[in-house]
Design a protein around this nucleic acid. Structure first.
Lengths: 201, 201, 201, 201
DNA sequence: CATGAATGAGTATTCATTCAT
DNA sequence: GATGAATGAATACTCATTCAT
């Protein structure tokens, strides 16, 4: 994709933008109504193109779903956090606050995507597999970050990570995404970190 | 007269059963395909009645959804656990193992319902409100059980409970519901309990 | 079908008629435009019902095609001709004139069906199989009628029958169906009979 | 100037080839799927050009159909047979075998075209007219060949020719085009010739 | 209570055709 | 000449809902 953009004539560039707009529009509509209740007409209207054009770029409505997931590698930002050298010298408390804050920030930033992702995962096996994979990646990132500081055995540590991480995601889905008070969120994260430290030390 | 009444009663009973069968069938179909992709025809066929009859008992497809939630007060079983006197004298470890095992068992028993519940909650505000309510009830139950044994302040305790509980639910949704190994599940619950005790003591 | 009609309540009777009307309408539309170019909307309009009703009675547009063929067992009339005792004592000339006249009459009566049948047979394997079967049946009928009067060996007789019969059908498809002059047709049939007799005697 | 012309000529040549490839591709696709079910996209892909180019050379999909028929004067090969001097001295038997063999060979060679031709003729008046014309030409050819050897009156001879010829075509459409046994075909043709000779002598 | 025929708006997808580049 | 993005009407099929019986 990135690659294709380089050799652009004006025309190709415009096509690229149109395709992109379709993906973004699909994400918006899907997350508002769910995949099944979204219509290709809605998506086309949102993208300000005619109905048929969707099928010039994608073979089906479902393919739009995959294009969305392709476009948003959710753990990308977390990866950066996890790899930052500056964290190496910090206390557990600082590291975890940073990591969880980034996680919640990312979830907020991609709110639409996340909501759709979880909703569809309940009924579409392939989407669920992808979701589980994404979550596992997130677990690995945190595990990688902690294993040098923590001496608990892997099983124990992993379960702790899984619980705290999925707990956070659920917190986001059910509560946090509908509020915008950053103070409350900070408090929540901070306290969660304190409790998590108790578990793993 | 007497006869008439008997007839009516019988008729009422039959009607009650039919309505019930419709609710059960709807639950089955909804959880298999999701609300939107389920058709009233599917439901009628599953309930072995004709298409139109649904609308004798319910005003719409959505009303069936509410009837399902009405019929299944999810925390009913947990309530029993939480109120059992026998738990009062037990150690934290025993109490929590019992409670979480009950929780997971209940989730399994009502797997279909749960999956649909979470799936629809992502896109239907009213369903989500109901889900949040149900979860809050669950939190209260555990809080009620623990507050006598634990001296942490409420905020701290509640957050811990919320995290562990939603973590468990997520664990169920993503992994546990697709496996049936009771040993693995027991191990998971037990370790989670140990970690949770660390947090709250 | 016939059977179902007997135990009719008024409602069932009406439904039966509607279904029948749909079949007849489909035949009309299919033969006018060909199967592919016919739309279910056209058919519904012709039958004076709404679009969706077609799918209450049939699972697909193609199923309508088969319902049509089911309803019209083409060789039915020829069978009667072939089995009539009165023919037994007649001269070859009379018998063949009678048979071919019946054949052409039947083709005319079911003109719409025939045209569609041949058109679709060119591209739909299953339809073609059905057509070949129907033609073979027709050949058998004539063969049955002749084998008592003709002493030629079977191979020879069959080939003669096949050629004359398919020749007649093609004559109908390309010319006769667009004209209505009974004299011309009679002349054609008569001369064909004379020539055919030359072949088989 | 000179150069320009060469360029133009080359360009014209290339254009000619592209147009030709489009016609051939259209024939291939049409005969596989029928006219209606064939898409211009299919045809463009088969011809390895882009979608829009078709409309540089043709005004519509239907125009492609006519271009195909224009390109394939079906009776061309038969004409050669019919005019060959060598046939003049041959026996009826040899002449007819030669002619019918050529006919069937030609049908086989242009199988795709023939199938499409007959399929479309059922629903497209203009195509049917063309088909009738082509068949009439074929009849004339054989009539021309026979009239010197046969003394029957024209009406009688023509009808015999028409029947045998359309019979042969039908034989091809329904049976012969799906088999490849040359012995069986030879047998068929030979016996048909024998029977035809009986009719016309 | 129960039936199932009937409605009609809606759905994903297709496709001939146009046209700016 | 050639490209392929864009159009938009059309299509088979679906489905919640209504209602006469």
């Amino acid at each position: 994709m990135e690659l294709q953009m380089t050799k652009n004539t004006l025309r190709q560039q415009k096509a690229f933008e149109t395709k992109n707009k379709l993906i973004d529009s699909a994400l918006k509509i899907f997350s508002e109504k769910g995949f099944d209740s979204s219509t290709t007409k809605d998506i086309a209207r949102e993208a300000e193109v005619t109905d048929g054009l969707i099928y010039h770029y994608f073979n089906s409505k479902e393919e739009l779903l995959w294009a969305i997931l392709e476009k948003h590698p959710l753990n990308h930002d977390l990866k950066n956090t996890a790899n930052t050298n500056f964290l190496l010298d910090q206390s557990l408390d600082v590291v975890l606050n940073e990591f969880f804050t980034n996680l919640i920030d990312m979830l907020h930033e991609k709110k639409e995507l996340i909501v759709m992702f979880f909703g569809e995962a309940q009924r579409n096996q392939k989407v669920r597999d992808r979701l589980v994979l994404t979550i596992e990646e997130g677990l690995q990132l945190l595990h990688h970050l902690l294993k040098q500081k923590i001496t608990k055995d892997d099983d124990y540590l992993f379960l702790a990570i899984r619980n705290v991480q999925t707990g956070l995601v659920m917190y986001f889905l059910l509560y946090d995404r509908f509020q915008t008070d950053p103070v409350e969120r900070k408090r929540y994260i901070n306290m969660t970190v304190q409790q998590f430290i108790k578990v793993i030390t």
